[in-house]
């Protein structure tokens, strides 16, 4: 087998093992979005209405995107951890190129995120089927198609997390930088509110936020409502994935120990 491919598989293998061992990561990644959906969605939903949709059903794609956003970016913190325990040196001193190390990490982080989202989609299906969230009808088609969109989103976001992590030496630094990034991306994405009636000063920020298009794609796939259309949505999320992978390989080449 090609040595670079085996190198990528090696990194992936390790990330999967760690994910499998650290169950708390998965529990946190499932419980938090469900609480948002039920409590935040239930609470706010009783006060506002969105044309033709139950509010909880409306934010379900947004909550999925939130889960992808947070868990993917935070995956970058594990590279800081690898630096601290010197595990990164063991990997960097091997013949595998830094590009492959980066790709292995991206696939590892993306896998974690996709597993979490698959579980959330099943939970969403249960909520819909038992009328806990009326109007949320998930099908096999929307399940698979959502995961395709999520795959591109998580690839970009894990890459961004790894880029930040590769340049950071402390957990605190990583958290500071990532929270400056995470909350604007999340709140300006239309995850929690419709973006067609925003005040004029917020609208441009929403427009340039790539997460907006991820949320829009998921909303189209799951609920059939969309602002920009699937073509525009997928162009943005695929374009972002390509750009961030290129940037990430560059960041790993430049990474200092």
């Amino acid at each position: 087998m090609n040595s670079e491919i085996r190198g990528i598989l090696a990194i992936w293998y390790r990330e999967l093992k760690v994910f499998q061992r650290e169950k708390s990561r998965l529990v946190g990644a499932i419980v938090t979005p469900v609480l948002w959906l039920l409590i935040f969605g239930g609470g706010l939903g009783s006060a506002i209405s969105i044309t033709g949709l139950n509010y909880q059903a409306f934010i379900f794609p947004g909550i999925l995107a939130q889960s992808v956003l947070f868990s993917s970016i935070f995956f970058g913190i594990y590279i800081v951890w690898d630096k601290k325990i010197d595990f990164l040196k063991e990997v960097l001193v091997s013949p595998v190129s830094r590009t492959s190390i980066f790709l292995g990490k991206v696939i590892g982080g993306a896998t974690d995120s996709m597993i979490q989202c698959a579980i959330l989609l099943v939970i969403g299906w249960i909520f819909g089927a038992f009328n806990i969230i009326p109007g949320l009808h998930l099908t096999i088609f929307s399940f698979i198609f959502s995961l395709v969109a999520i795959a591109f989103m998580t690839t970009s976001l894990v890459s961004i997390g790894l880029i930040i992590g590769s340049q950071m030496e402390s957990f605190e630094g990583f958290q500071l930088v990532s929270s400056f990034l995470l909350f604007p991306l999340f709140f300006l994405s239309g995850a929690l509110f419709p973006i067609n009636r925003l005040p004029a000063w917020i609208a441009p920020f929403t427009f340039i936020n790539p997460i907006t298009y991820g949320v829009d794609a998921l909303r189209h796939i799951i609920l059939g409502v969309s602002q920009y259309g699937l073509l525009a949505d997928f162009s943005v999320i695929i374009g972002l994935a390509v750009a961030t992978i290129i940037a990430g390989t560059f960041a790993f080449e430049k990474m200092k120990l």
Binding site: Y13, K17, E90
Partner: peptide
């Protein structure tokens, strides 16, 4: 520089793959 969430065997397997 070994990963302590893995077993000894897994660390070696990872190394062999790298």
């Amino acid at each position: 520089s070994s990963d302590d969430t893995l077993t000894g065997y897994e660390n070696l397997k990872l190394h062999g793959m790298l």
